[in-house]
């Protein structure tokens, strides 16, 4: 059993967890404010990866691979992710805001299906996988018995930085206060003069930007992009958010790392367990502690 918990497996788990964390942060934020499981979030992530791919080939002619290029590509991916998220909100979710919650969920499934099938059918993109370019040269370090690449470090740092920034934004800024108000009670927030739709739109913007960033990092870490790449990570990131306590930003991060390490360990043990572990975690959490690890208990108001 020694290899189950080797240093290398922990590094593997952290890397996987970082990608989940980036997706989960956006997921949990949108859920926290709008109470909508945005099934299309995983597809925003896929779009982010494709945007980064396109941006790389667009700018590579002028700038050599390196930090500047990565920065530009990151900005493009985040912008595109944010734009798609806001558009989805405007055209698909906003009109249903005051309809039964589950209609929005079904619409989200529709949006997700639309994005996936459209990307797959649209000839310039197509269903074939593409190799993601090495926007940043890869460096490998040997740490004790483990091999660590600079990507692992970057994924960790970016996830931590975005989480911190987001927590500060939500907890300290006036905008964040408005977001929290909307999350608690839309009508009361409106009475307090908060532009509720504006706040929701902003939330989607942030969520989409995060998904875009995650798309770029996933492209770097697992250099293969395809139209259906967002389904599984999206689902697992959502489970991570539930595990950490949905709506809770540090919780999403914590949940994502737990998921990453749990999945790696399970995979190292047995592939059947590895495939199902995410859903087993989900069901256990929902049965034992539906509010998640860091989630606060909210009374179900009627």
């Amino acid at each position: 059993m020694a290899e189950l918990f080797s240093l290398q497996q922990i590094v593997n788990g952290l890397q996987l967890g970082s990608i989940y964390a980036l997706i989960a942060l956006g997921y949990t934020m949108v859920y926290g404010i709008v109470r909508l499981i945005n099934f299309a979030h995983g597809d925003f992530y896929m779009i982010g990866a494709y945007a980064a791919y396109a941006a790389f080939f667009l700018f590579n002619a002028y700038i050599a691979p390196g930090n500047v290029l990565v920065f530009i590509v990151l900005i493009v991916a985040m912008l595109v992710g944010a734009a798609v998220a806001m558009l989805s909100n405007k055209f698909a979710y906003k009109p249903l805001r005051y309809k039964p919650k589950l209609s929005s969920l079904v619409t989200a499934i529709g949006v997700s299906m639309f994005i996936e099938y459209f990307f797959s059918a649209f000839p310039p993109i197509g269903p074939s996988p593409r190799g993601f370019p090495e926007v940043l040269p890869k460096v490998m370090w040997t740490m004790g018995s483990a091999q660590v690449s600079n990507y692992v470090v970057i994924d960790l740092v970016v996830a931590a930085a975005l989480m911190t920034g987001l927590t500060l934004l939500v907890q300290k800024s006036p905008l964040g206060r408005a977001m929290r108000a909307v999350s608690q009670d839309k009508d009361a927030a409106k009475l307090m003069g908060i532009n509720v739709e504006g706040i929701i739109s902003f939330t989607f913007l942030i969520g989409g930007a995060f998904a875009g960033a995650a798309g770029l990092l996933a492209g770097l870490t697992y250099p293969r992009i395809m139209p259906y790449m967002g389904i599984l990570p999206g689902l697992k990131a959502f489970i991570a958010a539930v595990l950490g306590g949905i709506g809770n930003i540090p919780g999403a991060m914590l949940g994502a790392y737990i998921m990453g390490i749990a999945e790696t360990t399970a995979n190292a043990y047995n592939s059947l367990l590895g495939e199902g572990i995410a859903f087993v975690i989900l069901i256990l959490v929902l049965l034992v502690r539906p509010t998640g690890i860091l989630g606060e208990k909210t009374a179900d108001k009627i």
Partner: peptide
């Protein structure tokens, strides 16, 4: 099919 679903929901 996906567009149809969204339209019905909307």
């Amino acid at each position: 099919y996906a567009i149809l679903l969204i339209l019905i929901m909307l």
